[in-house]
Design a protein around this nucleic acid. Sequence first.
DNA 1: GAACTCTGTGGGAACGTTACCACGGCGAAA
DNA 2: TTTCGCCGTGGTAACGTTCCCACAGAGTTC
Lengths: 349, 349
Amino acid sequence: MNNTTGRRATIIDVAKRAGVSKSTVARVLGGSANISEEARDRVLKAVAATGYEPNQLAVGMRSGRSGLLGIVIPDITNPFWAEVARGAQDRAAKDDISLLIFSSDWDAHKEATHLRALRRARVDGAIINPVADNFDDLDRFGMPFVFIGSSAERFPDTLSVGSDIAQAVRLGMDILVERGHPAPALMLGPRSRLARARFLRAVHEHCVARDVDPEVLLVEESDYTVEGGRSAMARLLAKPWRGNRAVFVANDLMALGAMIAVREAGLRCPEDISILGFDGIPAGAFSWPGLTTIEKPGRQIGIRAVECLIDQIAGGRQRERIYLPCRLVERGSLADVSASAPVRVAAGR
Amino acid sequence: MNNTTGRRATIIDVAKRAGVSKSTVARVLGGSANISEEARDRVLKAVAATGYEPNQLAVGMRSGRSGLLGIVIPDITNPFWAEVARGAQDRAAKDDISLLIFSSDWDAHKEATHLRALRRARVDGAIINPVADNFDDLDRFGMPFVFIGSSAERFPDTLSVGSDIAQAVRLGMDILVERGHPAPALMLGPRSRLARARFLRAVHEHCVARDVDPEVLLVEESDYTVEGGRSAMARLLAKPWRGNRAVFVANDLMALGAMIAVREAGLRCPEDISILGFDGIPAGAFSWPGLTTIEKPGRQIGIRAVECLIDQIAGGRQRERIYLPCRLVERGSLADVSASAPVRVAAGR
DNA sequence: GAACTCTGTGGGAACGTTACCACGGCGAAA
DNA sequence: TTTCGCCGTGGTAACGTTCCCACAGAGTTC
């Protein structure tokens, strides 16, 4: 039985109890061939009796594999990143790998500290949403790594996993067209963000394909917050509006703010203004109406990143960039005003 | 100077380069006294030149301290638990401790698997929100631990950290009284939950103190979901209502649902119905009106749990139960209908 | 000047595992 | 009968630390 206070059972304790050498115990536990039925049996019994659990530290020490993976994300408290972390953790657990999770708060100094911790812990690899842009020598990480998120974009020739913004925008524009909003207004994030450019480029491509002049679209921008979305929407509502009244918002938080602004203006969503968000945050499900949005594959990104990392650790040195598809989540914020459907839109001005 | 491909620098590499023994290097790095100025200097230079990072696995192996802590929570994707994890991680980082985070999904089997992983990783201690109730022999965890959350309640004589529900309820009832709602309706969680009994007991205590008959209070119950809160609110609205129209909801998700039900009934919140939530989930900030609620100290719980754990590892064997105070977060869902104030509605966001 | 303490240093054992080599026994091939 | 190969097993050397003991030399005390 387990020593509760004393030290833990080691492989030698097991060997003694089973009356074999520790080599034999190691072979049985390692699933090696060429073990007599009897030896295996006695070892297994001894393991059960002693409550032996292999010491990962010793294993890591000897084999060079710690059985640990690290992930550095901006903030575990942010629902998107929590999804990523969850996906990564679940996938890692399948291979009996444990995950060290760190939050960088978009702070290069914290990031550096966390990376040092990962190196000291001798993790077998790391998943990183890079904030610093001075990784002048990526090899200096000192371990295999996979980048995640849109900020990975800055580093070409690096294995990375992210969401397919182009596909997401196409999905959004298509559903807008289908619902009778061929020329929605756009609410974008700050100019500094890489994702903004990608978003805009995809919209333009859609417009070219559909033969719409992109210049026709109303555009507002804000800072990815509820408050920002609220004021941006107020500005949008003050503009002369043409076409159907729909807004494609590049971020759910802003979309929620936009919804509030609509209500404050005495209008209704979706009857007067349709709103399409982008992100898939849980809070979108609790607004009224529920926010129709495009959901980023957070969990999938985590899963895939771990898989890439495991592959890379095993040997392959890929420099691939992987984009995972987004998904439309229909709730109530998008009205159907297409000709084929009963018109549910309020009279325009 | 880092070997990018080759093996990492060890303490012996540093020693050779500095022209001293590994013992001296260890002493310098360990901040030991009795080191000549010259030796220290050369060691430090050699460390910088080789890019030496101590191998935690070896350290753990030799010293019996892995520098790792584990935390098993129901779901990292749940904002409350993410806060707890974040607090724990931040606090641990201060002591150069890394955190292994696991999600159990309230599943006893997953919990057992995770605990095994923690034992194998030789974590120095664990923070656990217990789901299984057959921990017949708590010492059999094989490591120091701290319980967190209300489910820790089932295990007496165990070090645990949680939120102070009694204080939270007092806080809520007080603000309701202050705003002119001396006898609010109650929306509770499922009968099976421990937290429900604690909530109800605190309400009764408040009533006794304020000389109110608790039987007067309308009560509905549901299952801690938005949908559940919505239907429970609908049932509540159908009842004959006496006193001011306010509801104290035992969970934010339900409160959000209640808010939707109010709107669906053609009523307004807070003008017609005031709602007070409990939890402090982020989504409450994005509803309209913003949800006034009582926030559980998630981050504090994580911080405190780590501190208790560190203490316990260091030696103390406490069996304390710690309750951390909750905080009122005022947004817009609570109207002031007290005699002293004109009926006003706070703008929330 | 001998015996002592103090300072700075080096050498080796141990932590628990895995990888490798060695060896006895046995059956098959020569 | 000898030789070879295979099977099952045991012994031992690492892996990179820390901890403890030993020891040389300088300073202090008698």
